[in-house]
Amino acid sequence: MSFFNKVFASVGIGSAKADTRLLDVNVRAGEEVKGIVGVTGGKTEQEISEIYLSVMTVYVKEADDKKYSQQAEIAKIKINEPFVIMPNEHKEIPFNFLLPEDTPVTYGQSKVWIHTGLDIKNAVDPSDQDAIHVHPGRLQQELFNALGELGFQMRKAENEAAPATLSKRLPFVQEFEFYPYEGPFRGKLDELEIVFTNIRKDRAELVMEIDRKAKGFSGLFSEMLEMDETAVRLSITDRDLPQLKAQLQQIIQRYS
């Protein structure tokens, strides 16, 4: 390899390229993601130290009365051992990994993508980005189904910077906003907000904020002071599923 080719490779000119192909872009949180990373060599021989996949999302952070978009890495997975790729050579590396249970659901403003990067010795790292559609995990879906049976419909979902009281592994939480469009709580509640604080395969912990509808002057006064909101902590396991709808109805009825 000539001196000029070495210089070009060191600044990323003519370097290898990565392209990730997913078996299915529809994925459920907690389940397996499968695909292939295709690597095509550039104009020079190069050593690929590492291929990594980062599961990424964006959340809203507020500071000085302004809102900012911030990226967050949910998981980072290394999928290879070091290898050398020759000029114009093509290699395909299959991969599979479990999507973390706390990956945000891609509803509303919540977006999730997989960032593929190559760690190339003495070169600018090429990268690739692939959006995925993340569906609720099993226990999340059971909760959403129960709320739907009670007449609630999801209106909004957004990732927001986590307050200190809810801060866990990730710097944000996903907030789901529901409104009662029919059923026993229509006209009684303004909205219902759900934040999952901890999600595992066998347990989901959450905070449910019940926003009562203002009734008369006293109700309006309470609403102005945000006294019409009640936060309830819940924990759901498989044992709760048969009675989940009744349990939710009883809790919401108590505070509505």
Rank of each mutant, 00 (worst) to 15 (best):
S2K: 06
S2Q: 04
F3N: 13
F3E: 12
N5W: 06
A9P: 08
S10F: 11
S10Y: 13
I13R: 08
I13K: 14
G14L: 07
A18T: 09
D19P: 01
D19N: 12
T20V: 12
L23M: 14
N26P: 02
V39M: 01
T44N: 13
Q46V: 00
Y52S: 03
S54Q: 14
A63S: 14
A63V: 13
K66F: 09
E73G: 12
K76C: 02
I77H: 07
I79H: 04
F83I: 00
P87G: 07
D102N: 14
V105L: 08
H115E: 12
H115M: 12
G117N: 13
G117H: 13
N122G: 03
A123N: 12
F152R: 00
M154Q: 14
K156D: 07
P163Q: 08
L166V: 04
K168D: 09
F176S: 01
F178A: 06
P180T: 03
Y181D: 09
F185D: 02
R186G: 00
G187L: 08
E191K: 15
E193M: 11
V195K: 12
I199V: 12
R200M: 12
M208R: 09
M208H: 07
D211Y: 08
D211S: 09
F217T: 10
S218I: 06
M224Y: 09
L225N: 04
D228K: 07
E229Q: 13
A231M: 10
V232L: 11
D240V: 01
Q243V: 08
A246L: 15
Q250I: 06
